[in-house]
């Protein structure tokens, strides 16, 4: 399935919805929701509520995160917001501040 890639040099201010995978390397402000996976790369800045099937976060995210499957915060991630998913992992080196709700 094709994916949507928001490149490093791009800023999107608004709402993004998609049925595909999304990779964010740039900046998103607003709302992001995908039916499949969302990857927020190292260097990306997301000021938005994010919802998807499975989320991998290695960049900066301020907002609420909701996943139907899992959320993985990788080393280098900086997340401020609440995370809600059946499975959550927070790697060594990830920074996180917020609530974690695994009771889905």
């Amino acid at each position: 399935m094709a994916s949507t890639v928001i490149g490093a040099g791009i800023t999107i201010e608004g709402e993004i919805t998609t049925d595909e995978d999304v990779v964010v390397a740039g900046t998103v402000r607003g709302k992001l929701s995908a039916k499949e996976g969302i990857t927020i790369e190292h260097g990306a800045t997301v000021d938005a509520d994010v919802a998807g099937a499975s989320l991998v976060i290695a960049g900066a995210l301020t907002g609420n995160v909701t996943a139907t499957e899992r959320v993985d915060l990788q080393s280098g991630a900086r997340v401020i917001g609440n995370v809600k998913a059946a499975r959550v992992t927070i790697a060594d080196g990830a920074q996180f501040k917020g609530n974690v709700d695994m009771d889905v």
Binding site: A2, T4, V5, I6, G14, E15, I16, T18, E20, G26
Partner: peptide, 11 residues
Amino acid sequence: TVIGRTTRVHG
């Protein structure tokens, strides 16, 4: 940057 076929951006 690629806005995929099923993606909708309002902004």
